[in-house]
């Protein structure tokens, strides 16, 4: 079941409540109507993608068309989650944009090697964050053709 592009759900994995709030506000500020779902660590991210535990119902937890991934998270960090997702035949097609405070060359290199699609350092000001959201939506949902975005596995 194909869905409209503007309805492509975004999944954000970030342990920082403020960042989650800002991401939601920036999405609104950019007038994007995509639903955004949140998980707080790598464990939860994988639970979500595999529809385990509290994410068992696909209606509440639709398959995302784009994942925004923070690297430094408790329990299972972004690097490990990234590795597991990209190792899974059924999940590796989902584009993953690393959105982190890190600027370290080492992190950039390693995450691209693990299969990340983009690496963005979290902007310092709100305006920049809005720009990032706009650009991301424009690129991934307008310019680029994504593979099937449906809730069937």
């Amino acid at each position: 079941m194909a869905i409209e592009r503007h309805e492509v759900p975004i999944l954000m994995a970030d342990d920082d409540e403020d960042d989650r709030l800002m991401a939601r506000e920036a999405l609104e500020e950019a007038h994007l109507s995509n639903n955004i779902y949140f998980v707080e660590n790598g464990e939860e991210l994988l639970d979500y993608l595999y529809h385990r535990g509290k994410y068992a119902n696909p209606a509440d937890s639709p398959n995302p068309g784009l994942i925004l991934l923070d690297l430094n998270m408790p329990k299972k960090d972004g690097r490990e989650a990234l590795k597991e997702i990209k190792a899974d035949q059924n999940l590796r097609h989902i584009p993953i944009v690393v959105l982190t405070t890190s600027k370290a060359e080492d992190d950039i290199f390693k995450t691209y090697r693990l299969g990340a699609n983009s690496f963005i350092t979290k902007p310092v000001s709100f305006e920049s964050l809005v720009d990032v959201m706009k650009t991301l939506a424009n690129y991934w949902f307008q310019i680029v053709k994504l593979p099937y975005c449906n809730n069937d596995k």
Binding site: D18, M22, V124, S125, F126
Partner: peptide, 20 residues
């Protein structure tokens, strides 16, 4: 120095929003 950056970013972020 890395951990100091995190709350600082928030200060800038929310300061900006507050002002705007």
């Amino acid at each position: 120095s890395h951990d100091l950056q995190e709350p600082l970013r928030k200060l800038i972020l929310f300061g900006g929003l507050l002002k705007d």
